[in-house]
């Protein structure tokens, strides 16, 4: 579950880099392994995150801030689910690296009480469901915040860049939409304010992305 969340971060950041000239600018000095040219070369941008572990809230915050300019703070919806995700990452560390035995420093980070004996991770069905909700909540929050950020750049910043100056802005918005839009959420009635791509685009223009 946690690695799926990590992969979401890789895919969404790679997708943004591939379409946003501002993110391209900020990521241009990132290194790629030559092997990316041979395996997975259809998604070259994703290779920029091969050596990045997103199972750490600090890395998530740093990447969102440095590449996109989204700062995780109490004023946006990412902060709380990211804190909860951080707790799951401490558990993950124990499961992956020490057969489920929680190291002292990880236990302290989780503010667990002192214990004479070692502490073992015990995840049952309901804990797994709760963890899945935490990961989903984080992915949903990040998807919305990044969509708002990139749509605002599409409106105000992209048309002024040499890369997109004479481009069809509607075609560019389609790329933004396809990167963030969830068919799953739409089919399951989970989108709170459901609009078509064109109506969304028109509303962004009419409200100046407010």
């Amino acid at each position: 579950m946690i690695s799926l969340t990590e992969n979401y971060f890789r895919e969404i950041l790679a997708g943004i880099i591939s379409i946003c000239p501002k993110a391209k600018q900020k990521s241009a000095s990132k290194s790629l392994n030559l092997a990316t040219a041979w395996i997975g070369f259809g998604e070259m941008e994703k290779g920029a995150f091969e050596n990045t572990s997103f199972s750490d809230p600090k890395t998530v915050k740093k990447s969102l801030s440095e590449l996109i300019g989204v700062n995780v703070s109490n004023s946006n919806q990412i902060s709380t689910p990211l804190d909860e995700f951080g707790k799951l990452c401490e558990l993950r560390h124990a499961i992956v690296h020490s057969a489920g035995l929680l190291a002292g420093k990880n236990a302290v980070k989780l503010e667990l009480p002192n214990s004479r004996n070692s502490v073992k991770i015990k995840v049952g069905y309901s804990e797994l469901q709760e963890a899945a909700e935490v990961c989903t909540s984080l992915v949903c929050a990040v998807n919305i915040e990044l969509f708002i950020n990139i749509s605002t750049k599409w409106l105000n910043e992209w048309p002024r860049t040499p890369a997109y100056r004479d481009q069809n802005v509607n075609a560019l918005f389609k790329k933004v939409w396809e990167l963030f839009y969830s068919i799953f959420d739409e089919r399951n009635g989970l989108i709170s304010d459901s609009l078509t791509q064109i109506k969304t685009r028109n509303q962004i223009v009419r409200t100046n992305a407010a």
């Binding site: 799926l4 969340t5 992969n7 979401y8 069905y125 992915v139 998807n143 799953f184």
Partner: peptide, 27 residues
């Protein structure tokens, strides 16, 4: 074969994982 949006890829993989386990199996 990845052709979904990143969030839909997450949902699909998440659902596959959660479907693979039920309360009886987990206990």
């Amino acid at each position: 074969a990845g052709s979904n949006s990143p969030i839909d890829s997450f949902y699909n993989e998440r659902n596959d994982l959660l479907r693979s386990i039920n309360p009886g199996y987990a206990s």
